[in-house]
Design a protein around this nucleic acid. Structure first.
Lengths: 203, 203
DNA sequence: TTCAGAATATACTATTCGGTAAAAGGACAT
DNA sequence: ATGTCCTTTTACCGAATAGTATATTCTGAA
């Protein structure tokens, strides 16, 4: 019970912090700013986080973990490589767009992470690239994909999706699901899949 | 003569600034750091730039202008849409990778720009997206491309290429030209071009 | 040699802001 | 009511650093 309340407060701090970091940047946001928006004071934040940088890590790390999780889970699902790639990109896109602010803060403020925090996150990203490359390679082996450079293609697909944090507008013409499906579709085209049409309305 | 020397010094400052901003971030870099690396003092920098933010703008703006220029020039060249898209992506990739640090600093430190500086750059980016979208639309009209959502495809292609600043390693296995050609190739696949092979060794 | 004017440095200010020690407030059991 | 423990605040420090006012040095002309 006590823990639940504490966890809730922690979440509220994170929510406000990511919002402000997203709008004004990490160094453009004061701990007093965050506290002020929450109607509390700065030392209150220090009862939940050791430092400003730890706050940043708490924003970035779980989000990158979710990104990796999205691809990794889809990759080990049953189904053809095309199906798994499609589903993986859809769910990965969902993470990127639902947690747009977290993703943006991570990519922008990476340099402000602690050395250990950055190392941990970098390891996750490496795994992300490996899982995606492996999935592409499997598709090539099974004759579904035509990809001259699998590692580069993985980076290209990952980039295409990650990049969405820079342009997606929640109030715009496209829903998160729509963007996810269209990006997944484009990923299959990049992979040289012939019968892409069948995925048009999938999931 | 006086002006040339002054321009040269200005360039040296910019060179060192972009390097340090790239390595340590904008707010992680002191004007004294930059001056120190150059063997001069802080007020010296102020004889060439009004403020730290102006320095940042001088790093970002010309680079974004070059990106736009790369696509815009290729788009109005003679040739089929496929050829123009291919060439445009190759030269755009070149800008991104040759000016990797500038691009990275821009995307990371955008929030630190002045309101007017940001507005100017945003206008350039809008034009970039429009030019690329228009090129894709033309390819669709002429039957070369198959693209359900042209605007989204433009963002996807732009993102795929821009993203390269996050992973490209100048000392790595791939040259800038190689990456450019492979990304252009992937862009054509995304656009649904059938005979992509003919572009494999183009340029 | 001297003297203007440009180029560059020294030395300083004012402020912002992450972090903390110590006090106050509040809930709850007895 | 009172004492205890947990939560939150008040009040403060010290370091960092963008920007500047003033001094100095250099250069090239006369």
């Amino acid at each position: 019970m006590r823990e639940e309340i504490s966890a809730y407060k922690r979440e509220r701090i994170l929510e406000e912090a990511v919002k402000l970091f997203y709008e004004r940047g990490f160094s453009g946001t004061t701990l007093d700013d965050i506290a002020g928006k929450l109607g509390v004071t700065k030392p209150f934040i220090y009862t939940h986080f050791r430092s400003k940088v730890e706050l940043l890590e708490a924003i970035c790390r779980p989000t990158i973990e979710m990104s990796l999780g999205a691809i990794a889970e889809a990759a080990q699902q049953p189904g053809t490589p095309s199906e798994r790639l499609f589903d993986g990109i859809v769910t990965f896109s969902k993470v990127v767009l639902q947690r747009q602010a977290n993703i943006a803060v991570y990519f922008r403020e990476e340099k402000n992470l602690s050395e250990t925090g950055l190392a941990a996150i970098n390891a996750l990203r490496k795994r992300f690239d490996r899982v995606l490359s492996e999935l592409l390679a499997e598709g090539v082996r099974e004759g579904e994909f035509t990809i001259p450079d699998v590692r580069l293609a993985a980076l290209a697909i990952g980039g295409m999706v990650s990049w969405a944090y820079t342009w997606y507008q929640p109030e715009g013409r496209l829903t998160i699901d729509t963007v996810g499906h269209r990006l997944a579709h484009l990923a299959l085209q990049m992979a040289g899949v012939h019968s892409v049409e069948q995925f048009a309305t999938r999931v």
